[in-house]
Write a protein that binds this DNA or RNA. Sequence first.
DNA 1: TCATAATATGAACTATTGGTTATATGAATG
DNA 2: CATTCATATAACCAATAGTTCATATTATGA
Lengths: 103, 103
Amino acid sequence: MIMDGFTAIAEPTRRAILDCLRTGERDVTTLVTELRISQPLASKHLRVLREAGLVEASVRGKRRVYRLAKEPLPDVLAWIGPYARQWSIAFDRLEHVLESESS
Amino acid sequence: MIMDGFTAIAEPTRRAILDCLRTGERDVTTLVTELRISQPLASKHLRVLREAGLVEASVRGKRRVYRLAKEPLPDVLAWIGPYARQWSIAFDRLEHVLESESS
DNA sequence: TCATAATATGAACTATTGGTTATATGAATG
DNA sequence: CATTCATATAACCAATAGTTCATATTATGA
């Protein structure tokens, strides 16, 4: 299986899982009820996200608690940078401003 | 077919096409030779990118010249923003700096 | 207008993916 | 221990995606 970040976030349900986890960690059952998906489907998507390094899990009792990885999506962010005109503009402006400040 | 931005950039060859077009417009034949793919495959991927709004084409003689759309990937950029920690940090800093400057 | 160059499209094939149901695993609890 | 709860996995199916080869389309130039 083993998917890259791009393929991992191409699936709407997986994006929904990530968005959900962005507000805090969740166990599988919580995700299942919040996203209204079947439990096996959740487990499958979570496995993909885990293998792609986007989420991490820890075993807490019989629950498995998932959370976002600290630096998720490095490949996607690196690739998409040049296409984020607004963002690169913000970067450039920031650099300029900080430069002229320090002088 | 009609794919969204996420699915469009999930395919490595399509990302390669976009990266290629980032340095300037190209006709199909040029893309074919630069990326070493078959011509029908190029046309198919270009169609996907066109329908997803990532590239535009203009007919120039018997050539079809493709270029990046002006604001490509709005959906992806919007979704990924909150995950781009470094970038949001840059944004925040920029806001602060500009604020304290104007006062 | 005929031949050719550039691109798009269609048909067919294969691989992969997202989804289901059923079952296995493994911890907690009575 | 036996049961139940939480999660993962297996087997399978339908839909879709990527690829190739062959053919259609369209514009150009002789």
